[in-house]
Every structure is written in C-alpha cells, then in structure tokens.
Design a protein around this nucleic acid. Structure first.
Lengths: 112, 112
DNA sequence: CACAACTACTTTGCATTGTCAAGTAGCTTT
DNA sequence: AAAGCTACTTGACAATGCAAAGTAGTTGTG
C-alpha cells in the first residue's frame, strides 16, 4: 500500500488551489507541492492533471517565453475554477471529517 | 469531478480502523461508514476492499451464522493490521496536513 | 558550430481502486 | 412456495497517480 491511492483527487484540488493564488506554471507548481509536503509528485502526474483542469474549464493557459528555457505555459484559474475550488474544499472537508472521525474517534482516541 | 477520487485509499484506512475497534462484518461496516458520513459507499466498494485487506494479511475473517440471514463473515484486525493502521494514520495525516496547507493556507483560510 | 546540460512540457502505458450492476444464497413471513 | 430481506460475490468500467521516455528551447564549453 503506497501513497498513490491517498493522493488521488486530493492533488487535483491542491493544484487548482495553487493556481488560484496567482498565475503560475508547471515547474513552479511542482516546487510548491514539494515544499508543502507532496514530495514525490512527478511531471507525469502534474502535467496530465493540468491538462485535465484546463479541459474542464477550471483553468486557462497562456504561453510565454521563459527567461531560461523553452516556452512556459502559465496557468490561471477561471471563475469556474474558483467555484470548483470552493466545492472541492467543501467536499474535501466533509470527507476529511468523516475519515478523522473514524480514524481517530470522536473524542475517545487520544492521538499525540 | 466526483467524490470517488477523493475516496480512494482513504476508505481502506477507515474500514481497517473500524475493524480494528472490534470484530464486525460487511453490512455493519457499511452502516458505520454511512453514519460517519461516507453515505454513498456501496457493497461493490466495500466487499472487494475487505478481500484486499484480508489478502494483504491486515484482517482475518471467520464465518459464523447470522441470527437473521445467511452466513456472515466476521472480520478482525491482525497485528499486521494494527501496525498498518498506524502507518496509514501517519501517512494520512501527512497528506492531510500538506493538503490543508495548500487548500486553506498556512495561517488562515482567507488570503486575498 | 557541435555537443552536453539544463529547463519545461508531452505522451504512452500500466496498476490500483471506487462504482454500477447483476448474481448467489440463506432465512423469515405470508 | 413465493416474496422480501440479509449478506456476500463477481464482472466490467472509468478515473488517476506514476514511471519512463520523448520533444524542444536555451546556455555554456570546446
């Protein structure tokens, strides 16, 4: 059992959240994810996810030259993206609360 | 985007946690999950999950007659299951913290 | 200029797993 | 005995994280 199953779905909301903070691009998102603790996130995970978000109209992308390498794709959240993010947060919180209720107990299990 | 992706992996730990509390069987687990908030969990989700947990040695099962219907499969957690549950809780907490850091911000929910 | 190294994004293919749907089987009630 | 409940099983499917390899632009070294 590895982390990948836990990651599913969560990552999508997190990436959307990062983009919603301000225009950014793939490589930078990767570093933000790593800083936050998603250390194993690879390009093969992120880029398809960005494509999916874009296809669903939650983010839009603009191509611009990088001062360093090849063209970057700068993403920013659409209004639908902002709305979707709120919905995601709600769903996430519900599930997280349900999970924690079961995992740690309502008040019975003392966890450090 | 539906809940199913968020559920992946989380459910496994939750079911393991429920079983770790004491011997129980599928139908009962379903009702516990529903009470906790996992309302859409169907049999087709739970039973394969139980099989998987058993195959991985995290739970064991014992068949016993039910006062009502057909034979029940009572599950209980093995030592490996307890250990696995602890590990799951740690992993879950790490991911949840990372996710919440991104979703809600480090110091507060409101950021511009 | 040619080649390597780095940045940045793309694509393919796979394994895992939640979900829908239908099925099997025992027990109780009518 | 037929219907309806409890309880578990199975098959097919779709979503998605992930590894690995590929494409392409820029810079530095010779």
């Amino acid at each position: 059992m590895d982390n990948s199953q836990l990651m599913k779905g969560i990552l999508e909301g997190c990436v959307l959240s990062i983009i919603a903070r301000g225009e950014t691009y793939g490589y930078e998102i990767l570093s933000v994810l790593e800083e936050a603790g998603f250390e194993d996130t690879g390009e093969g995970t992120l880029y398809p996810l960005l494509t999916r978000l874009e296809k669903n109209g939650l983010i839009v992308c603009r191509r611009a030259k990088s001062p360093l390498g090849p063209i970057r794709k700068y993403y920013s959240a659409t209004e639908a993206g902002i709305t979707g993010l709120e919905e995601f947060r709600s769903r996430y919180r519900l599930i997280a609360e349900s999970a924690e209720k079961i995992l740690y107990g309502q008040g019975g299990t003392q966890h450090d």
